[in-house]
Nucleic acid binder design. Sequence first.
DNA 1: ATTGACATTGACGTTGCGTAAAGGTGTATA
DNA 2: TATACACCTTTACGCAACGTCAATGTCAAT
Lengths: 254, 254
Amino acid sequence: MEYTVQKLGKLAGVSTRTLRYYDEIGILKPARINSSGYRIYGQEEVNKLQQILFYRELGVSLENIKEIVTAPSFDGASALKGHRDKLLERREQLDLLIANVDKTIAAIEGRITMSDREKFEGFKQKMIEENEAKYGNEIREKYGQEQVEKSNKAFKNMSKEDYDKMTNLANEILETLAEAIKTKDPASELAQKAADLHKQWITMCWGDYNKEAHAGLAQMYVDDERFTAYYDEKQPGTAVFLRDAIHIYTGIKA
Amino acid sequence: MEYTVQKLGKLAGVSTRTLRYYDEIGILKPARINSSGYRIYGQEEVNKLQQILFYRELGVSLENIKEIVTAPSFDGASALKGHRDKLLERREQLDLLIANVDKTIAAIEGRITMSDREKFEGFKQKMIEENEAKYGNEIREKYGQEQVEKSNKAFKNMSKEDYDKMTNLANEILETLAEAIKTKDPASELAQKAADLHKQWITMCWGDYNKEAHAGLAQMYVDDERFTAYYDEKQPGTAVFLRDAIHIYTGIKA
DNA sequence: ATTGACATTGACGTTGCGTAAAGGTGTATA
DNA sequence: TATACACCTTTACGCAACGTCAATGTCAAT
């Protein structure tokens, strides 16, 4: 089957302007130009457009789409499997947002209370995802770590100094903890220093600070195995130790 | 809790530029300006920003968001319930897209075949939804039918004539069918005329035509109760009659 | 031969911000 | 007390991904 701009446009649900634009920027060239200068698209172009729309749907910029689909190594089939994963991720994120709406409604009706931070839960996840779309896998492989760090910095809306400070802080926490745990006393000076460093870290992450959230997060480090794994990597029991230290530091048991 | 631009930005996952822009266009004004000219946001603004981000997430333009959230009749609680519904719709649409990817993968692996039209299934639904976001309920109530027609026209990327023609065609099909069914013969001249009109209608909808799809759609009119209801509204049995006529017209039984 | 829906190439407009530039503010530290 | 340094401000230009004319050519049907 052969298509003119309008036919392909109707088929795919895009405007003729879009198709001409895609031709202009070299992301989807027609199979041939007929004697009157009309753009004629064929089977291959239909499939390519489908791929392009998948990437677009995922928030990838046309510039990056171009790099991806015109690359000689481009493999349509494996790209589709990537799309699948991303779409599933997106559905999870959607569920998070829906849960957020439900919570907000419940909060308005007075059934529960909701912190300001909770009010924006689903949105931030979305940003991470969009960032991934921008500087995701394909790009990561090409330009390496630098781009990714830049994007992380951009995402967090931080200055370079802030970003470095946070990275250092995270390391310092781990080091201090490694020393502190030898005392076996979560009330010890070193343990309390670790808790204080952790407070600073949280403040940078969230932009604000309150003891309840801090104590709650500390408990989560124990309850959620992903966090437990992070802190316990070098020395099992570190997550529990940190939680105890923070509970003493804040004077709150979650 | 009071917030400066950066604190609120971090909390909500938006840039300071975005907050200043929202102030500039009058969609989110700070609670007050302090003695040094700093923007200070309070509790009310936090909640309003959350609402704004919900609408933005759903693809509503900032101009429309402004109309919505600044309207004196704006009811945050019921708006949230609206968000919930839209998000659920969006999840269904996502599932459609995911199904589409799965189908495409299966098609590449040769397990099934896939028509060009099927390749873009999920995307078009998305466009309808985006259009709803643009010219949706709130606007519909304000500007009435005109805007909605305009948007429908825009969505379908049709000329005004095309749009009118389609509407007329749809009516003509129903009228012809109403007459034809009296003959009780799906092979009758009138019934075949109805099938031919229906072919024209399909061609306008899809931009192309093939008999298999036509016959398949006819069968769907019988299988899917939403379509059956549409055709059977005036006279039960019309959907079945149309299907039979089309199967004769195309020479195919789905 | 004319109509009317198709196509073409410019070229300027729009949305929702990003990104300097140039400067004032507030507080911790040397 | 000075000096850093992260915070805030306004002004202003830049950008992606098209939308939207305008001016013109093409093609099939009446």
